[in-house]
Amino acid sequence: MAIVFEKPHALTDIPFHYCPGCTHGIVHRLVAEAIDELGCEGRAVGVASVGCSVFSYNYFNCDMVQAPHGRAPAVATGIKRAQPDNVVFTYQGDGDLAAIGTCETVHAATRGENITVIFINNAIYGMTGGQMAPTSLPGQITQTTPYGRDVKIAGYPIRMCEMLSTLDGVALAQRVTVDNVKHVNEAKKAIKKAFENQINGLGYSIVEVVSTCPTNWGMSPKAAVEWLENNMLPYYPLGVYKDKTAQNSSHTGDGSSDKPQKGGEN
């Protein structure tokens, strides 16, 4: 009988600990498939960040480093600068990437740090039990916004891909989701491209995956997918926000000059 589907080699045999309906599992598989297809497991180094996905260091078959909360881009920078031939990726949640680690994220991006970033946006802190995330929607009920996110108090959600797309160092900023087969296939392509960009030396590539958290949203997996489609996607539109490999990207302007310039003389 022909094999039509199997676990990618870049995943270990350790069963995921993720909740039923959580999309981490799908995204892990897509990352592993991309690594397999590019044949780079042997030189890949992943950076696990603090959050539910911290245990990804047990699941990916490549070498792994666990970073302090928010610092994954800095740790990845250190790895990549020490071993430029490694294929380095971070796997970060929204709290990690868009709250405590925004500074590291923005600066890794603007340096054009040649790394691949997988960003799971599920609008909630999963591991600590469902607190408001930087990406929680206005009105969204969480453990720390029991009356709904009041933008007068807690401010507005951050759209990271849009924000990062303004930076010259970013090669790819794309938002995808994994709510259906078509979207999973698109997500796979984006993730693979983000790795290819690194292999081709193009700079910082981020793929934001709009994801579900049925447990902390207090929904069944099916209801969570519906809530994602009805609430998350309108606020976080899918699409390519920056792509250096495309001809007519909206932010291809590169006004930088490599010439040394003295402050105040220009």
Binding site: P73, A76, T77, G78, A82, E104
Partner: peptide
């Protein structure tokens, strides 16, 4: 914060 974590990454990568 970033600087010390870059050290962590570089050293974890063997240098």
């Amino acid at each position: 914060l970033a600087a010390i974590n870059m050290v962590l990454g570089a050293s974890a990568a063997g240098k």
